[in-house]
Amino acid sequence: MTAPAAIEVIGATRRFGRRNAVEDVSFTVPENSVTGLLGRNGAGKTTIMSLVSGQDRPTSGEVRVFGEQPFENGRILSSMSFVRDNQRYPEDYYLRHVLDVAPRFHERWDAELAARLVDGFRLPAKPVVKKYSRGQLSALGIVLGLASRAPITIFDEPYLGLDATARAMFYDALLQDYAEHPRAVLLSTHLIDEMESLLERVVIVDKGRLIREDSTEDLAGAAFTISGIAAAVTGFVDGRRVLREHRVGGLLSLTVEGALSPAEKAEARDAGLDLAPARLQELVAAYGADLANENEGARA
């Protein structure tokens, strides 16, 4: 991956009082890519997005967007669209006001795309936007994010309150518009199973720290789950890094980092063990489980 960087986060720390919401985090979002920011609640995802979008400044470290600091940088800010999960609108704004104002902030605004999405999401002209339901607010955020065609588009859990039909519409619209107008998209999500195939790269954070940054594909082979009779399982994974443990009675299932050779796979099957590649969802859950952090501590 040698695409130029749209976003570079370099050793960024953001302290609130005594607590580091984000601690020494570094990662890169290449131009023309869809990158997922994954992690449990409180992992620091929204703080990272605020830093990247120039709405906040790191206590130490650096954030660069197209090579420049985004904070109070008008030129950079006008190339960004950040859709917060709790986006606020002026008290008296109706849908048409929002759609009228948006193009002033985004020079590549596509009114036709916006109209199509408003239609698809069935966003009502009344009441005022402030009284929209959770799902309608999310849908409006998606309209703004996609129709802005901003070179950097950031979505913070854009699906909250959306039903399955609307989510599928969002995925389709994102992919279709991204294919025609590539840009850097950074989005946070907990719906990993559902959105995994949309993501080209993944950044995993936990407790304010970067856990992994990789292509979705490389992460897919990054761990496996092995289960069966406890004694056989533990014997087999001896010496490997266990990310997550699930034990019920004499049965044990472990999520283990690394990959197995074909010979090892055959050996495991002959020993009556079940093997499955860990899905991205499981991997993120495993990294967010405290066992992983204990192991991390033990290794450090």
């Binding site: 890519s33 869809v34 599928a168 995925y171 389709d172 992919l175 279709q176 991204y178 294919a179 025609e180 590539p182 195939s197 949309l198 993501l199 080209e200 979705t216 594909e217």
Partner: peptide, 18 residues
């Protein structure tokens, strides 16, 4: 095309391209 496959299967175009 890559974009058609990406849209149809809901997969990132870069993955389809690969």
């Amino acid at each position: 095309s890559t974009n058609e496959l990406a849209g149809f299967y809901r997969i990132n175009p870069a993955t389809v391209g690969k």
